[in-house]
């Protein structure tokens, strides 16, 4: 019998702790495949965040560092400056990247730090049990917005790709999703491109992945993907927000 599908060498052979239907598993696989296909698993160092993907260090087969909440881009900066020829990436959620770590994100981006950021936007804090995230939609009910996110008091969601694409240090910003096969294929291409950019020393790349959280959204996995499609993609349109072909580094 011939093998028609094999788990990527980029992931360890352990069951993850993610909830059934969670899209983290898909994105992990895409990252692992991209690293494997580019043959950089031996050169890669990933930085895990605080949040649901905190234990990503157990799942990726490359070297991993676990960072404090929001600080992954700073840790990745230190790694990249120490190891300029290695492939350094962060894997962060929305609370980590766009709330507590906004400063680290923005400044790594504006420095044009030659790293790749995989950003999971699922509009909620998963690990702590479903509180409002910086990307929670207006009106969306969470544990800490029980009457729906009131933009008068809780403000508006942050569109990360749009915001970062205004910065000259950003070489590449694309928003993708993993809610269907077509989008997964696109997401894979974007993630791979994010790593290729780094290898070509183009500067800062971020791939935002619009994701689902069935558990904290209180839905079945399929309902969650449907809700994502109907509610999130209109607020967070998919597409390329910035792509500087020659990169942002003058002396790369």
């Amino acid at each position: 019998m011939s093998i028609v599908f094999q788990k990527t060498k980029g992931l360890t052979d352990v069951p993850t702790h993610y909830c059934p239907g969670c899209t983290h598993g898909i994105v992990h696989r895409l990252v692992g495949e991209a690293l494997e296909e580019l043959d950089v698993l031996g050169d890669a160092v990933g930085v895990a965040p605080v949040g649901c993907s905190v234990m990503a260090y157990n799942y990726f087969t490359c070297d991993m560092v676990q960072a404090a909440h929001g600080r992954a881009p700073a840790v990745a900066t230190g790694l990249k400056r120490a190891l300029p020829d290695n492939v350094i990436f962060t894997y962060q959620g929305d609370g980590d990247l766009a709330a507590i770590g906004t400063a680290e994100t923005v400044h790594a981006a504006t420095r044009g730090e030659n790293i790749t950021i995989i950003f999971i936007n699922n509009a909620i804090y998963g690990m702590t049990g479903g509180q409002m995230a910086p990307t929670t939609l207006p009106g969306q009910v969470t544990q800490t917005t029980p009457y729906g996110r009131d933009t008068d008091t809780a403000g508006y969601p942050i569109r990360v790709c749009e915001m970062l694409s205004t910065l000259d240090g950003v070489a590449y910003a694309e928003r993708v999703s993993v809610n269907n096969i077509k989008n997964i294929t696109r997401a894979k291409a974007a993630i791979k491109k994010g790593f290729e950019n780094q290898i070509a020393k183009k500067g800062f790349s971020i791939i935002e992945v619009v994701s689902s959280c069935p558990t904290n959204w209180g839905m079945t996995p399929s309902e969650a993907l449907k809700w994502l499609d109907e509610n999130m993609l209109s607020y967070y349109p998919l597409g390329v927000y910035k792509d500087v072909a020659e990169g942002v580094k003058h002396n790369a």
Binding site: A67, A74, V75, A76, T77, G78
Partner: peptide
């Protein structure tokens, strides 16, 4: 950020 950059470099 500075101390976390130190952490990254020290990790390496």
């Amino acid at each position: 950020a500075a101390i976390n950059m130190v952490m990254g470099a020290a990790s390496a």
